[in-house]
């Protein structure tokens, strides 16, 4: 029979969190730094993969399709061990833990972003391309001036949710010794043995980040509305609208 008085006295030492707040915040900073650098590289490579996958050049589209299907399926933990230890064993080159984290995330998330961009690019009505071509735009111009801006708008909310996943995946990089939130928590736990308290604090930090990212991406989204409703673009279009008003007055 299991009786509750068999358990050691429960003693939640919540003050620990406050006492070690700066170590935790520092860990959070590292998580954010790694994931932001990886966000930039993943978006760039993801876009490139999406374009390759949609191209009529078979080797390019086949490469992109295989890449996406392989790397979507690899867990972050495996990816980072592979990059950090595997690369060093195979080629004798040692990445820093930060670099290894960025590369590991980029390998995985460029596959996800590729799919996000492909869906977004395909969602643009073909009439847009035809209108651009009919006006006399080059195909490259149609892509950069018409298709990409409209596809970005569609992709932004999905990029936001992916980014939350990226931040969470940085937690697995504790294994290579990246001093992010989970590694900080592990270290504190080793000396204090307060797993419930410390990991709850870690969870709260991740949730806070998720909320913040959501808020930020909502803001970005607003600046991509037609017409833009976000603060930044409203500020930018204010001057523009005044110019248009002048123009209207001039030609009326």
């Amino acid at each position: 029979m299991f009786r509750s008085d068999d358990l050691p006295p429960v003693n939640f030492h919540w003050a620990l969190v406050w006492e070690n707040r700066w170590a935790l915040v520092r860990g959070l900073e590292v998580s954010i730094q790694v994931s932001i650098v990886a966000l930039v590289t993943s978006v760039a490579i993801g876009l490139f993969l999406a374009i390759s996958r949609m191209s009529s050049f078979k080797p390019a589209s086949m490469f992109a399709a295989s890449y996406v299907n392989i790397f979507r399926g690899i867990p972050a933990l495996v990816s980072v061990i592979w990059v950090y230890f595997g690369w060093s064993l195979l080629f004798g080159y040692n990445f820093t833990v930060f670099q290894a984290g960025v590369i590991a995330l980029t390998l995985l998330y460029s596959a996800f972003f590729s799919e996000i961009f492909r869906a977004a690019l395909q969602a643009i009505p073909k009439g847009q391309r035809e209108a651009g071509l009919a006006l006399g735009m080059s195909r490259a111009r149609v892509f950069t001036s018409l298709i990409l801006p409209q596809a970005t708008k569609i992709a932004i909310p999905n990029i936001g949710s992916m980014y939350i996943g990226m931040v969470k995946d940085t937690s697995t990089f504790a294994i290579i010794g990246l001093v992010e939130v989970v590694r900080v928590t592990q270290n504190l736990n080793a000396t204090n043995f307060q797993p419930f308290v410390l990991y709850s604090a870690a969870a709260v930090l991740y949730v806070c980040i998720a909320f913040a990212v959501d808020l930020i991406f909502r803001g970005i989204e607003k600046n991509f509305q037609y017409p833009p409703t976000g603060r930044i673009s409203r500020f930018l279009t204010k001057g523009k609208n005044q110019k248009v008003a002048v123009l209207i007055a001039k030609f009326s």
Partner: peptide, 13 residues
Amino acid sequence: VGMVFQQFNLFPH
């Protein structure tokens, strides 16, 4: 040569 389409095809952005 200019072209006008049934669906207008203005650039929404």
